[in-house]
Amino acid sequence: MSKPELKIRLMDTHAGGDVSRIVLGGIDPLPGATVRDQMHYLRDDADGLRKLLLDEPYGIPEMSVDLIVPATDPEAEAGYIIMEVMGYPIYSGSNTICTATAVLEAGLVPKREGRQRFLLESPAGRVQIEALVENDVVEAITCEGLPSYIDTYRSTIHVPTIGDVTYSVAYSGGFYALVDAAELGFSLVREEERALSECAYKIVEALQAERGFSHYTLGDVGPLPFLHFMGPVEQVADDFYRSRSTTYVHPGVICRSTTGTGTSARLALMHHEGSIRPGDKLETVSLRETGFIGEFTGTHQEGQQTVVENTITGKAFVLAHSDIVINPEDPMVRDDSVYHILGSRHDTSS
């Protein structure tokens, strides 16, 4: 006897070129007292959803998936869980910009003209959102970046076939290696995308083999996954800077955008070097000429760490509204760790 088809309701969006597939319906409620707990359940007991929506035939590894879930924080309007090819990051700027836009466009948060503020709940905790709506269009989203800090400043590692590489390491939602693109022979143009990915892979592999990194409260968060190539910083106004940038996140995957967390990492580095003051902004510009604007808003002390407070501003665009059909008889859909959370009765938009 054939199993019934199941549907998942989606809104595809992008911010800075990074596609975020927003799951609005078709997933049953997940166990967990917090959104972070629900993320752990997905990771440990239902990872098939991530694989289903990022692998063929439904998706590609360069995409992200954001599952909308009910908030557990009574002050938050909605919760969301981020899924990417490398796993489950607790926070992402581009995904947050896309999710905030999606909850407004889907009516989960009533859209109002002008500026409006609301809270979302990410696995990292509550996130303050400010949306700018003009003529019923979400023109910009400003979201809090995670408190960011410099773990390592200008250390050197020998990388086979490349040589000695100078790098810094920042935490901004994940650990980032920060390297000077020009020192490695890159101008940060789109034609270099494949070479950037190959270079970043070698550096990250060498760093992972040599050392680990520990967060001051989270402890061991796994091997360093990300590398951010930094272009020269240009000062375009008294309080405004611009820099070409690109972020490597996984073998073969260079983000289309500059990434919000990558931009937060840059702000932490600029503060560490004493080159920015509270209120200063940095626009990071991608290989595809898209950008996010990070603002350095202040610092506070966490134990022995001085952490940088920041916001990220960008715009998301809606690409598509769709229902995808999951047919359990399809030989391309083999992961049984997804079917127990699929249910056509559940729809987060209702």
Rank of each mutant, 00 (worst) to 15 (best):
I129T: 01
C199W: 00
G260K: 02
G274M: 06
T297F: 02
V325W: 05
L104T: 01
D37R: 02
N327Q: 13
G107P: 01
P160A: 07
V23A: 09
P4G: 10
L269I: 09
R190M: 09
Y339M: 11
L196G: 00
L267W: 00
Y149L: 08
A316H: 04
L132A: 07
G303D: 05
G87E: 11
S187R: 14
Y149T: 06
P31D: 01
E56R: 15
S148F: 12
T217Y: 12
D335P: 06
G185E: 05
L108C: 07
E84D: 11
L49C: 04
D335I: 10
P160H: 11
L342M: 05
R126Y: 13
E329T: 13
P61A: 11
P331K: 06
R288W: 07
T263Q: 03
A33W: 09
M83D: 02
D44W: 07
D347P: 05
E139G: 14
T299Q: 02
G279S: 08
A100C: 07
P61Q: 04
G294W: 03
E198S: 07
C98G: 01
P123L: 08
D66P: 12
R334P: 14
Y176S: 03
R21S: 06
F118N: 00
A316K: 04
A181Y: 05
D28Q: 14
G173H: 03
L132N: 04
E191L: 00
E329V: 11
K315L: 15
T99N: 15
L52H: 12
R36V: 11
K51V: 15
A182S: 15
T258N: 05
A76V: 03
L282H: 03
F118P: 02
L53W: 05
I129N: 09
E295P: 06
S168Y: 02
T311M: 06
E309V: 06
Y91C: 11
Y171Q: 10
L104C: 00
A76I: 08
